[in-house]
């Protein structure tokens, strides 16, 4: 609703200023065009640019590779962009990329992975995790008498501090709010490798080592990983012994939430489709010399079956009718 209103206001503003408004060329290099989440980011960006009217968006794909991100930066500079929005994965390349941009006098916004001297935009990972952890604790308090036997942590150690902050947020959010906090040795950390299959495999291999745990909570780095956990529990005939929360609220996760008798309690939303609004507005502010905070955060919401229909009623009509 708020967005709709904003759009109307903006369109009106544009109509007034269209005569003399400057057009900005803005380069956007996406993390990868292979991932559902980042596809939504790009689509949101294109939508917003069309709405604003004075943005010429130049797209590139960083393909999860720092070297490609650097070469995309150079291409942007050659193409004479006014600003760059970078979604790139390799922190090591941050310095070089920023040095090039500084030399060319081009402002940069970095998504999710900070780069020195760039405005940071992204998830408040710890907070996002905390939301999920709290929700999980509330569910355990209500359904399992306030205590769990074990916790599976499906993390992604290879990708450094950002996913780690999410996991930390989830664990601490749970421990702080559950009636009986889990002992440290009941928390089992597993490498999900960010895929559903790997999460299925490691959880399949781990379940036999906790034969007596009847109340298992699982926290996962993203929605797909969460589905892997549930599939493994189902295969082991222990579906009812597990409850899972995740991060991302992507279409896979939402579909799982909007299922009857789901073991996927919910997932913290990052709303990638809305990244474009904040990003392009901040970029234009920067280009027009207005003050912009050094870090801009996404508005996170924990999506569960209780509120999914508030956000995605159109996508799950059958489920929301009930």
């Amino acid at each position: 609703m708020k967005n709709r209103f904003l759009i109307v206001v903006l369109v009106a503003l544009m109509a007034v200023t269209v005569g003399f408004a400057q057009t900005y060329r803005i380069g956007f290099a996406n993390l990868s065009e292979d991932i559902a989440f980042t596809q939504l980011v790009r689509e949101g960006m294109q939508r917003k640019a069309a709405e604003m009217g004075n943005i010429e968006l130049i797209l590139a794909d960083n393909k999860l590779d720092g070297a490609i991100a650097l070469s995309n930066t150079e291409n942007f500079i050659t193409q004479g962009v006014d600003g760059i929005i970078h979604f790139q994965t390799d922190q090591a390349f941050g310095n070089v990329i920023m040095a090039r941009a500084r030399k060319a006098g081009i402002p940069v916004i970095a998504i999710d992975i900070p780069m020195p001297g760039a405005v940071f935009f992204g998830a408040d990972n710890y907070f996002a995790g905390q939301l999920a952890g709290e929700a999980l604790a509330a569910w355990v308090n209500a359904n399992w008498d306030g205590s769990a036997d074990a916790m599976l942590v499906l993390e992604l150690p290879q990708s450094g501090p950002i996913p780690a902050a999410r996991m930390q947020g989830m664990i601490e959010g749970f421990q702080a709010n559950v009636n009986t906090a889990l002992a440290e040795d009941s928390i089992i950390r597993l490498d999900s490798k960010n895929t559903q299959e790997e999460s299925f495999r490691v959880v399949s291999d781990t379940l036999p080592s906790i034969p007596n745990a009847k109340k298992i909570v699982a926290i996962t780095i993203n929605d797909g990983t969460g589905q892997g956990v549930i599939a493994a529990a189902e295969a082991a005939g222990r579906r009812d012994q597990i409850i899972v929360v995740g991060q991302g609220a992507d279409p896979t996760g939402l579909a799982a939430i909007a299922t009857e008798d789901s073991r996927y309690l919910g997932s913290t939303g990052y709303f990638p489709e809305n990244y474009g609004d904040k990003l392009l507005e901040a970029m234009v502010d920067m280009l027009e010399g207005k003050a912009v905070p050094p870090s801009i955060y996404v508005d996170h919401v924990f999506i569960s079956k209780d509120n999914i229909c508030d956000f995605y009623a159109d996508d799950f009509q059958d489920f929301c009718k009930k």
Partner: peptide, 17 residues
């Protein structure tokens, strides 16, 4: 090394995967 390796649940798990 692991008391859970040589268990029927683990064998069932291996068989499934």
């Amino acid at each position: 090394q692991s008391e859970f390796f040589f268990t029927s649940t683990n064998f069932a798990n291996l068989a499934r995967t």
